Amino acid sequence: MTAKTVGNDFTMSQQHSYVNYKEGYYYYFRDGDDEIVARCSAWTGMETVYVNGEQVSKFRSLGFNSKHRFDYEGNSYQMIFIVNGAMRGSVECLLIKGDQLIGNECVALNTRKGNKWLAIGMAALGFACGMAGAFIGLSYALG
């Protein structure tokens, strides 16, 4: 496959799914001769679906699940995104044509399992923010 521009913002040159902090989530599927690609921003929640470089669906989703429905050349498709692990940034993408599963891909920002220092750091940050909020609230309450 040669690199081809998709939309105005990136080039579709990868034939596999991946994720990184800069480009976000990228899912690649094939259905016969058609290349079906989804791009999801990890920062803004914007999800865009392309078929053969043509944008067929786009909207912002800030939930843990979303579903894109689109028709292409007489076929009905659904692309479903499911957040499997918010701490790891793990998002699964399913492509369904009619009632048949075409593909299923799962990628994660943090692939290290059981990172205890991340958990300890998040807990410490939560504790510090909670204490700061309590101190400020108490200061206002006492005058």
Rank of each mutant, 00 (worst) to 15 (best):
G143V: 11
Q55R: 11
V56S: 10
G7V: 03
N65G: 03
N65E: 11
V107I: 12
G114Y: 06
A134K: 02
C40F: 01
G74I: 10
K97S: 13
F127Q: 05
H16W: 00
F127I: 15
D31L: 09
T2R: 11
A123M: 12
K67I: 09
L109W: 01
T111E: 02
L95N: 10
T5V: 07
M122N: 07
R69E: 12
V37S: 04
D71I: 06
M12T: 00
I120H: 03
Q100K: 14
G103T: 04
T48G: 01
A108C: 07
F29W: 08
S13M: 03
Y50Q: 11
L101P: 05
Y18C: 01
Q78M: 07
C129S: 15
N115G: 06
Y21S: 12
Q100G: 01
N115P: 13
D71S: 13
F81Q: 05
V56A: 09
G103Y: 04
L118K: 09
G74E: 07
L62G: 02
G98K: 02
E105H: 08
V56I: 14
M46Q: 13
N8E: 07
N84Q: 13
R60N: 08
S57T: 04
V91P: 00
G7F: 00
Y21Q: 12
G74V: 04
A134T: 11
N65A: 10
G143N: 15
Q100E: 15
E92V: 03
L101F: 07
K116S: 08
A132E: 15
N20Y: 10
L62D: 09
E35A: 12
I36P: 03
I102F: 14
R112A: 06
A123D: 01
K116G: 03
N75L: 02
M87A: 11
F10G: 03
D31G: 02
G53A: 05
C40V: 09
V91C: 00
N20V: 04
L142D: 07
Q15D: 12
Y21T: 09
A124E: 10
S139K: 15
N104W: 11
T11F: 05
Q100I: 09
G24V: 04
S76T: 14
N84I: 02
Y18V: 01
F29Q: 05
L118M: 10
R88M: 14
G53W: 00
K67E: 08
R69N: 15
V51D: 00
G126Y: 02
M1I: 13
M79K: 08
V91F: 01
D71G: 05
N75H: 14
G126I: 06
N65T: 14
T11Y: 04
R30I: 07
A38M: 15
I136C: 03
N84Y: 03
G103P: 15
D99T: 15
A42H: 06
E35M: 08
N104E: 13
R88W: 02
G114K: 02
A123C: 04
F127H: 00
D33N: 10
G24F: 13
Y50F: 15
G63C: 05
K58I: 10
A128F: 15
L101A: 07
T5I: 06
N115D: 10
Q14Y: 03
K116P: 02
C129Q: 11
